[in-house]
């Protein structure tokens, strides 16, 4: 078997971000259409057919691939919008579509047998048994793992499937299994599975009060900040709450994932691709992050035993990560 080389998969929420990722050495970029058919259905973000076509051409001319996320769950009443999106993706000649819904996979397989299929992280497949079901049924080429497995568990998945395994390496961190989190819809109505949003901006309210700056989601107090505290976007699972008399980040701190340290291990266990989260981020962010990860992957590939995270990489990442703290997440067992 040929040695698998670790690919770098970068986010693009706009044409300038796509160009930035390609220019800085992404092996592939992933994009979405401008509606609820993908899990970053944010206002002002994403691609229509025109910009997608330009993006595909730009990437292909420079040897990069384009993956299209159609990774939300269609309902009976809006099913056609999702199948039409699969048709559009096929016409655009993207290199693969990233799907979560097996019903939609069946459609794609039937209508566009040449279209490569990836299983989205939103498909919640955390074991080789689940992944191999999609392989047998739909011939998926790649699966993106939810951010819940330790590295040893990821390695076990890789060993037991022909499907390429992609993992998240950097960016926002879902503390819940992707595709199995309804906290947003419980609180605000719209959630990731069917609407492609989490803690939607339209339901967020900020207010200055005598007790401090408060963030609310559909009226529910997510956090309250003192004068010296930095307030980030009020993502539901990263607020402070009261449990048994203690007030703390009961689910997760406002931290993000950074696995630069784990790169040699990720390469050694046969992971096919590392995904950078952040289609909602600016082109400048995408450029910086892609640059660092390209350099890190190249260094790791050239000399895995001599690999060490450079201070310059970390400072470059810290500059764009707005002073956020980083975690190794579930890859590192004590996080659990």
């Amino acid at each position: 078997m040929p040695e698998r080389t670790l690919q770098l998969i970068c986010p693009a929420g706009s044409l300038p971000a796509l160009k930035a990722a390609v220019d800085e050495g992404a092996d592939a970029v992933y994009i979405g259409f401008r509606d609820a058919t993908n899990a970053r259905a944010f206002a002002g973000l994403n691609f229509d057919d025109g910009t997608a076509q330009q993006g595909v051409r730009y990437a292909h001319e420079r040897g990069a691939r384009v993956l299209l996320a159609l990774n939300t769950y269609p309902r009976a009443g809006n099913w056609q919008r999702w199948t039409a999106a699969v048709d559009r993706a096929a016409r655009l000649e993207v290199d693969a579509v990233i799907l979560a819904d097996a019903g939609l996979m069946a459609y794609a397989r039937r209508a566009h047998p040449q279209l490569a299929l990836h299983l989205s992280v939103q498909g919640s497949a955390t074991s080789y048994e689940a992944i191999n079901l999609y392989r047998e049924q739909f011939g998926i080429r790649r699966a993106v793992l939810p951010r819940v497995l330790s590295l040893a568990q990821v390695e076990n998945v890789v060993k037991h499937t022909e499907v390429e395994i992609e993992v998240f390496g950097f960016g926002g961190l879902c503390v819940m299994v992707e595709g199995r989190c309804l906290l947003s819809s419980y609180t605000a109505g719209d959630g990731p599975n069917t609407c492609g949003v989490c803690s939607p901006a339209k339901a967020v309210r900020w207010s200055e009060t005598p007790a401090g700056l408060e963030s609310r989601l559909n009226g529910v107090l997510l956090d309250r900040y003192g004068a010296q505290e930095k307030a980030g976007y009020p993502t539901l699972c990263k607020g402070r709450f009261e449990v048994a008399g203690a007030t703390y980040y009961a689910l997760e701190e406002p931290t993000s994932l950074n696995t630069l340290d784990l790169l040699p291990q990720m390469q050694a266990i046969g992971i096919a691709a590392i995904k950078i989260e952040g289609r909602q981020r600016s082109p400048a962010y995408v450029a910086q992050v892609t640059q660092v990860w390209r350099a890190a992957i190249d260094a790791c590939r050239a000399a895995p035993h001599a690999y060490a995270v450079k201070e310059q990489w970390q400072s470059q990442l810290n500059r764009v990560a707005e002073g956020q703290t980083h975690t190794l997440g579930a890859y590192h067992r004590p996080w659990k």
Binding site: A76, G103, T194
Partner: peptide, 12 residues
């Protein structure tokens, strides 16, 4: 938790 929201997935 299998996230069945449409007839195609249920039929499958």
């Amino acid at each position: 938790t299998l996230n069945v929201y449409n007839p195609a997935l249920l039929g499958w």
